[in-house]
Design a protein around this nucleic acid. Structure first.
Length: 191
DNA sequence: TGGGCGATTGGCT
DNA sequence: GCCAATCGCCCAC
């Protein structure tokens, strides 16, 4: 059975923003486990911040990081487990002009390079107008919902270590980052 | 109660 | 490649 994170690759994420709906196709995700994963926010148990991770699957976990960025997760584990999938990058499908505006790019509406709009967890949240107000919301209906897409074939999925978790000891090497092989919209560092 | 730090990003050398 | 920005969270004191 494919990993829950892998099953999200190729899915479409749509979001209602103040100026209309935007959509991206997921090209990069990371899996975070529960009490056995030192890299996971749930590793040290339930707190006010990560409470949603310990709730039932099918909900959004949104956290604030580095004093300026939000990151979006889909809770995947059963209630009490604390596992989730970090949404790291998407390929713009609809509303690229709005996403560029939300990203504060000067050339809004003009050509951008792959990854400029949603090629990173913080960038994707900015482009989709995601913040803590969405923490705990269901992921199958507005204002933010994920729809099935073309499933990724095994050979198209590249697994590599997760980004930015060097503090996690042995778990830092676990190959829980999944990306569509060769897709130009994935974040840096490239897998 | 306070200090260190982070599942990041963008700008500058 | 290096580093500042910027603040909520969490744990040690």
């Amino acid at each position: 059975v494919p990993h829950a994170a892998v099953r999200l690759l190729g899915c479409t994420v749509e979001a209602d923003t103040p100026d209309g709906t935007v959509a991206v196709r997921l090209v990069e995700v990371e899996a975070y486990r529960g009490a056995d994963d030192p890299a996971s926010h749930s590793f040290r148990g339930r707190t006010a911040r990560n409470a949603v991770m310990f709730g039932p699957p099918g909900h959004l976990y949104v956290y604030f990081i580095y004093g300026m960025h939000f990151c979006l997760n889909a809770v995947t584990g059963e209630a009490g487990v604390g596992s989730a999938v970090l949404i790291r990058a998407g390929e713009p499908l609809a509303g690229a002009v709005r996403m560029a505006e939300l990203r504060g790019l000067a050339a809004a509406g003009r050509a951008t390079r792959p990854g400029d709009l949603a090629g990173g967890p913080g960038k994707l949240c900015r482009a989709l107008a995601i913040d803590r107000a969405l923490d705990g919301a269901p992921l199958d209906r507005p204002p933010l919902w994920i729809e099935p897409g073309e499933p990724a074939a095994d050979g198209e999925v590249a697994a590599s270590p997760r980004v930015g978790v060097d503090y996690a000891g042995e778990a830092a090497a676990w190959p829980l980052r999944f990306a569509l092989r060769g897709n130009p919209h994935v974040s840096r560092p490239r897998p």
